[in-house]
Structure formats: C-alpha cells, structure tokens
Computed example of a mutant assay.
Amino acid sequence: MGWGNIYRRRAKVFTLALIIYIDYKALQKREKFIKKSKSEALWKKAHERNAKRVFNLMVELEGLWVKLGQYLSSRADVLPSAFISNLKQLQDSLPPRPLEEVCHTIEKELGKSTKELFLDFDENPLATASIAQVHRATLIDGQKVVVKVQHEDIKKIILEDLKDAKSHC
C-alpha cells in the first residue's frame, strides 16, 4: 500500500465529506421555503442517506475507519439516531471476506491448505469484524474448533491509516 493508495483513501474521505456538506447545506437553504412539519421528515431522510454513505465508506476503507465507526455508534449524545443505527452494524455485521481469501490466508500462515488441516471448515463465518473473521471447523483428529482468520493486508491498512492520521496531527 503506497502513497497512491493513501491519497485515494484521503480523496474518498474528502469527497464524501464534501457531498455530505453540500447535502446538508442544500437542505438548510430549502428549509426556509417549506413547512416545519415537512422539514423534520426531510432532515430525517438526509440523516439516513448520509449515515448510509458514511457506513458504506467505512466498510470499504476497513481498518481504523471501522473502529472509528464502532466508537461513533456508541455516541448517541453526538450523532442523530440514523447514524447510530447504521454504524451499529459495524459492531458485528461486516460483510465477510471471500472464502478463497480466508483459505489463502490460512495456507500462507500455516503452510497447509484447509483440506490438509481440517475435516470440515464452515465457509459461513460465525462473525466478521474489522480485522478478522471467525469460522467453525473440525480438526483432522475430530476436535471441534473455532478458527479466527485475520483479514489479508489488514496490518498494512491499519499502519497506513495510523501514518495518515499522524501526518494530520
């Protein structure tokens, strides 16, 4: 992950911030010409729309962005409820990584394929989080286990995000 990728990530964040700013500013201007009863509904829709945008970008960017979203989901004192409900999905409902990626990571880390290590490996994860996902499996000796597989390249992503954050301080 080089500088080009860091700048692409920054550009995505900046672009989304600009879109959200323009969305809210336009609604603020429009509000002058509509009834208060309609205004509340429009603000609620804007919050929902922008919360989805933020959620989708955090899922795409992964790493520390997901951690930030998890933290923000606990801040009902700061954010509208639409943001809280959308960002709460980051607690335990992240999209799973493809099975091929999971198997590749296991083989890279352990030097053997899942077929060599397990009698059975459940392709549907029990949970997916910001840095890893968890699968049920049965070892060759029959012992049932849970396998936590770190997402590919997550270490690089987090380190780059930390460098990026440090450069802004």
Rank of each mutant, 00 (worst) to 15 (best):
K163R: 09
D153S: 08
R49L: 06
D161N: 05
Y21A: 10
E48V: 10
N56D: 14
A51P: 04
G4W: 05
Q89S: 02
V147T: 06
I158H: 00
A82D: 09
A165E: 11
K36I: 15
I6T: 07
N5C: 09
S73R: 05
V145L: 01
R53N: 09
V149M: 02
I106W: 07
N56I: 05
E60Y: 04
L94W: 06
Y21T: 13
K45S: 11
R10D: 07
I84F: 05
T15W: 12
E62I: 03
K112P: 11
I20N: 02
M1P: 15
L79W: 15
D120P: 03
W65G: 00
V149N: 01
L99C: 10
E109F: 14
G142W: 07
K29T: 15
K38R: 11
G111N: 11
K12C: 01
E107W: 10
N86Q: 14
H135M: 03
P125Q: 01
C103K: 12
G4F: 06
S37M: 09
V145P: 01
S37T: 14
S39G: 14
P96R: 04
E62F: 03
V59F: 02
S113Q: 06
K35C: 13
K38D: 10
K25L: 12
D77E: 15
L162P: 10
R49Y: 06
S39W: 11
S93N: 13
Y24T: 08
